[in-house]
Amino acid sequence: MSAPSLGKDLVGLEPLSADQIRLILDTAEPFKEVSERPIKKVPALRGKTIVNLFFEPSTRTRISFEFAEKRLSADTVNVATAGSSVSKGETLVDTARNLEAMRIDMVVIRHGSSGAAQFLGHRIRSNVINAGDGKHEHPTQALLDILTLRDRFRKIEGLKVAICGDILHSRVARSNIWGLTKLGAQVAVCGPATLLPRNVHELGVTVLPRIEDAIQWADALNVLRLQLERMHAGFLPSLREYNRVFGVTTERLAKAPRDLLILHPGPMNRGVEIDSDVADGPHSVILPQVTNGVAVRMAVLYLLAGGSPDWSQQTGGVD
């Protein structure tokens, strides 16, 4: 049986087929168990070298990738650079060439410019994994969101997911839109009109202008982090007003026709886009998302390195 492969890089979910997305999710399932073992390590990527190249600050995503790599026995190096490469003097293409010269196997890149992961992937032979590029995509975040939804609802097809908040600047929103729609979910976006991108309905999503509408409609809410600098850039009058008009609160959720699953990619602004009692409440899967993040990233690393989906049947390392 020939399973679909992922190709060389994972730059986003837009270029992937539904089968490729399912392959990653299915491969992640057995990797969940690895993290529950007393010795959380398999030899799948033994001897592989991976660079985590972070041009933007990140705690959660970087640590999640690093755990995924270490649990697969890869050798890893973290490079964290504040600001864009241009302001540092060295261009991204020079950075890429240097990495190439060091014969590393994989690069995980987080960068402030949309397209940076694809740019790197086109210029080096190593596998490139996008850990978030500008406002473009954050594919592993969407994959862990979808895996978490699948854990709870058993299937994605027909599910109604509302993505709430700053859609305009969100790579998480874009990757979720692609991934969910490809798997047959119905997707809505909800947020202030100033934070919705032009022509967003042409991506195959419904636009819901009010959070109350989203709560009436959805099976699950994916509540995005509101970047505080958006207020200073004039997109919003105040955080207080944002919470009053768009915040996901217990009072609003009480009017939902059914129990809503609550996702949030973190880090949260408690009391802004989400109230604490919702974030910590019984329908929140915010921490299971984090757990799933490691499994999904293990699956992506493993598949790009050329592993086959039935790794758990194998006894030794994979090369």
Binding site: E14, D133, K135, H136, R198
Partner: peptide, 15 residues
């Protein structure tokens, strides 16, 4: 240009 392509690529558009 601000439009569907800028939305997909995640680039800031000029209307």
């Amino acid at each position: 240009h601000e439009g569907l392509v800028s939305t997909r690529l995640g680039l800031k558009g000029v209307p």
